[in-house]
Nucleic acid binder design. Structure first.
Lengths: 306, 306
DNA sequence: GTCAATTACGTTCTCCGTAAGGATG
DNA sequence: CATCCTTACGGAGAACGTAATTGAC
């Protein structure tokens, strides 16, 4: 009632060699054991598959029919196992990561490139998402894991902190604040402020703090960091971005000044579903990202006054 | 290293129910045994297929990949076994018989019709062959078995005699011989004779005997029995056919007279290869033909003088 | 605390290998 | 008579079930 891979292999070996002794040898078994094996197979399928005397071994008509099925079964088995092992060896597979636009601009692609050089067979996908939808993306399985400023519900997600990423004030190069080595939130009092997306992590992080500082909201709420830089450059206000976003704000007329104080940085977590394990490929990328943190700490910060 | 049908079934049961206890029950096993079974499967394929706590069972990404392969494997296994058992039950299959034109004219189709009513799923094929090629057809596997006047080499073929089929003289109704109740070969002395195919069994059977009887050879050698009847009807000569061929010679102007004497009949054997067993379907038809001999003995012989 | 999966362990059964038997050419 | 498949039989290992344990909610 139940075929096994070994029975199929035995059948195919005998079908090819037409000799019990040879086929047994090929299957690394004694001849009697092999004989019993064929008998078991015939018993299980319910029909005689070989005509055999001590001199000749031939397929029965039913055996010839079964041979086709046996080859398909063996092929499917091999394919299934090979596929799995290719994935285990990271020779094939697919990983999808969700991360914030700032990291998706440079560091994540850089890390993905390293990963791709090491495991060229693995298909990669990067979804740039705002903080709000990151966890949803992971929850729905559209990404294997995500990078996010919030670790998510600890019952649902498992998170490890990658690093605390310093925040920077972005202002015009001729702004008085641009000459400071550091700024505090209190320095921003009364200033016009351009928000990044309300659903983004920086906004979520700073919003309660800025409310205390009597910040003047310009009403602008941009999606692309390039747009933000343009607005700041043309005098509509100032803004705050994480260090990894500085590169996207690179303009001659702009300056960046590190924030200091209690909330001068925002965390970045690696977040994955707690109750679903990562694929081997995803686990590999996860580990690589953890190792890649130093490159992130050394992120380019060339926007500087003077 | 070796998947078995039971492991695949276990995997699919768990994949569907997502509960060890339910899946174990469905596989008619205890829960611990089932648990070990899944562990064995995971050990054999080399990767974890399920994420499980005592509360939740989920497929790993690799498990989801494997599920597709597992379904294909299970499907191929089921198909292979079902096909075999359909054939064993004679619900499907194919039989090819080779027989002489005389029997192929009526009796064989009649028997095939009986077989087809009983086993409508089995595909039937009837090859009408002259004696010469009958055994070749069987040897090459183009027919599962044959009907032939010669039993063939007993090392190569296994033959059972169906019956001895009486031979009849075919002549014009106004022939002096037509009024006889029986004729002997000696009565044919000096008569012009029309041969059926030299490769046919009747010719092979009679040729040495006719040579002793100073038979006059017309030079005609026909393929179709209808042609033979036409030649006889128009006075070119006489001929001899087996009883089963009489129906094909049915004409008002013709008469048939049974031969008597030592060689007044030719045998018909069922012949099959000795070293290859018959398919279940073929064995069924073989048995049915053996049972159908009485109908062959009662073959229509309406060609009669007066 | 309860429920579900797992581990522990004794038992049964499958399955292999060695040795003897039987059939074929 | 030589060769090759099969049967017989004993032992090793696999796999199952019962009972105890661990872990999650």
């Amino acid at each position: 009632m139940s075929l096994s891979g070994r029975l199929i292999d035995a059948f195919l070996a005998l079908e090819e060699t037409r000799r019990f002794s040879l086929a047994a040898q090929r299957c690394h078994m004694s001849s009697p054991a092999f004989s019993q094996m064929v008998a078991r197979l015939e018993d299980q399928v319910g029909v005689r598959l070989f005509d055999r005397t001590t001199r000749h071994v031939t397929l029965t008509p039913e055996g010839e029919v079964f041979a086709q099925g046996a080859r398909r079964i063996a092929s499917e088995m091999r394919a299934a196992i090979d596929d799995l092992q290719d994935r285990a060896q990271r020779r094939t597979g697919r990983v999808s990561v969700a991360g914030p636009p700032s990291l998706a601009a440079d560091w994540l692609p850089q890390q993905l490139a390293v990963f791709h050089r090491r495991y060229p067979g693995i298909e990669l996908r990067l979804r740039d998402v705002v903080s709000d939808v990151c966890l949803d993306t992971v929850r729905r399985g559209e990404a294997d894991f995500g990078l996010n400023a919030l670790p998510g519900n600890s019952l649902e997600f498992e998170a490890v902190k990658l690093l605390d990423e310093p925040l920077y004030l972005i202002c015009r190069a001729d702004d008085p604040l641009a000459s400071r080595r550091k700024v505090r939130l209190s320095h921003l009092r009364q200033r016009a402020f351009i928000h990044t997306l309300r659903s983004g992590s920086v906004w979520q992080h700073l919003q309660p703090l800025l409310r205390d500082q009597d910040i003047q909201d310009t009403g602008f709420e941009v999606d692309q960091l390039g747009t933000l830089a343009g607005l700041v450059a043309h005098g509509f206000g100032i803004s705050i971005v994480p260090r990894s976003a500085l590169q996207l704000c690179q303009r001659d007329s702009l300056a960046a000044v590190p924030l200091e104080g209690a909330q001068a940085s925002r965390p970045i977590y690696l977040v994955r579903p707690r109750h679903r394990s990562l694929s081997t490929a995803a686990a590999g990328l996860w580990a690589l990202l953890l190792q890649g943190v130093p490159q992130l700490r050394r992120a380019p910060t060339s926007i500087r006054p003077q």
